[in-house]
Amino acid sequence: MIEHAQCYNWAASENQRTAFDTLVGAYPQGGCMKLTAQDIADVARLSRLELTEEEKETLAGHINRLLEHFEKLQQLDTEAVEPTSHVIPVFNVFRKDEPGESLPVNDVLANAPDVADDCFVVPRVVET
């Protein structure tokens, strides 16, 4: 389990500071971790990653450290700034509604780990 203090100690160790800290912003004084062990478990579940306890701990440290660095962005006033989701000023890229060739079913299934009756096979999906 990841404890609050443990994370704080880990991150606050002067020796472990790197140029990264100076770069993306000084480590906030008295900064505390954002993600709890439950958060990490939830994010892992959302990401479909079955993490080991050890991984969860390492990741918690890394992610919290990054999140602290992201805090730097909050200093900037972006109230009136449009977000950039595309760097290119392009709109309305379409294709014509013309049917083309589909793949032969053998190609479709070529890399499938499990196949039967020209279908991909998965463990039974419970009606949820």
């Binding site: 294709r95 013309e98 049917p99 083309g100 589909s102 079913v105 299934l109 020209d118």
Partner: peptide, 16 residues
């Protein structure tokens, strides 16, 4: 550009 249709053999109207 895979065709839109109903029914048919499984996985025959698929592309990357």
């Amino acid at each position: 550009s895979c065709e839109v249709a109903f029914g048919g053999e499984p996985n025959t109207r698929c592309c990357p």
